[in-house]
Computed example of a mutant assay.
Amino acid sequence: MIDEEGKGGDLTKNTTDIGRKLSEHLNPGMEDALNARYGHLLPGMAEGVVDFAYGRQYARPGLGLRDRYLGTIAALTALGGQTMPQLKVNIAGGRKAGLSQEEIAEVIWQMALYGGFPAAINALNAALEVFGEEDS
């Protein structure tokens, strides 16, 4: 699990339980929403996302959670506009992990070099939506 410094801990524990605790903290209701939307088509998909993405990736030791979110936001930005829903979720998670609005904007803008200006501008628009929701 994530320690006080935002770094992952012992992954010999049940990664699904670790992932579920972390995902509920960062994105409350995500597993239920995925299950409601896709569970009839892909049973176990929601639990798989929680286990792999949160329990096995975000909870890993060696890199702080906020830094993992910087990398995730950068990658989703460079991939372009088709990642908008995931980008919003990860920007919100990054804010909960301690990223400032300025840090998020800067990592997005850095990706203009790699994903292009349209991708960066689309990601900045996603960030503005998330920041606006925080303010309301």
Rank of each mutant, 00 (worst) to 15 (best):
M111P: 14
A120V: 05
M1K: 08
K7G: 04
G19S: 09
Q101L: 13
Q101W: 07
L41S: 05
Q57T: 15
K88F: 01
E102Q: 15
E47H: 05
K21D: 14
D51Y: 03
I18R: 00
T83A: 15
L26A: 14
R20S: 13
G81I: 12
I121E: 07
G98K: 04
A33M: 09
L42T: 12
I104A: 04
L11I: 06
H40S: 14
A123L: 01
N14T: 01
P61W: 00
G39A: 10
P118F: 01
R60M: 13
L63Y: 07
A78F: 04
R56G: 13
L11N: 11
G44P: 02
D32L: 10
L113A: 14
P28K: 09
L79W: 06
L41W: 01
G6C: 02
L87T: 03
G81T: 13
A75Y: 05
L70M: 14
G98C: 00
P85H: 13
A126F: 03
P28H: 09
R20P: 07
L70F: 04
L79A: 14
A46L: 05
A78S: 15
A92L: 05
M111Q: 15
W109Q: 10
P61H: 03
E103L: 10
A105C: 10
A59F: 03
E102T: 14
R20Y: 04
K96E: 05
D17C: 02
L22N: 11
Q101F: 05
I121D: 05
F131R: 02
A46E: 13
M30P: 08
Y58S: 07
A36T: 11
K21P: 02
T15Y: 00
H25C: 07
I108S: 11
L113M: 13
I91Y: 00
E102A: 15
V50M: 10
D32Y: 01
E47N: 06
I18A: 02
L124M: 10
G116T: 09
R68S: 04
R56Y: 03
I18H: 00
R95G: 06
E129P: 02
W109E: 11
A36I: 04
G115R: 03
Y54H: 13
P28C: 08
A120L: 03
L65M: 10
G98T: 06
L99G: 11
G71D: 09
A59I: 08
E106V: 06
Y38D: 09
L11A: 13
L113V: 13
L99K: 05
G93W: 01
A33V: 13
E24Q: 14
I2L: 03
N35I: 02
D10N: 14
N14W: 00
K96V: 02
A74F: 08
L63V: 15
V107R: 11
L22H: 11
N122E: 08
K7T: 11
Y54D: 07
D51H: 11
P43G: 07
E31Y: 02
L128K: 15
G48W: 01
Y58M: 15
P118I: 01
P61G: 12
A59R: 08
G64L: 01
I91N: 00
H25V: 08
Y54Q: 08
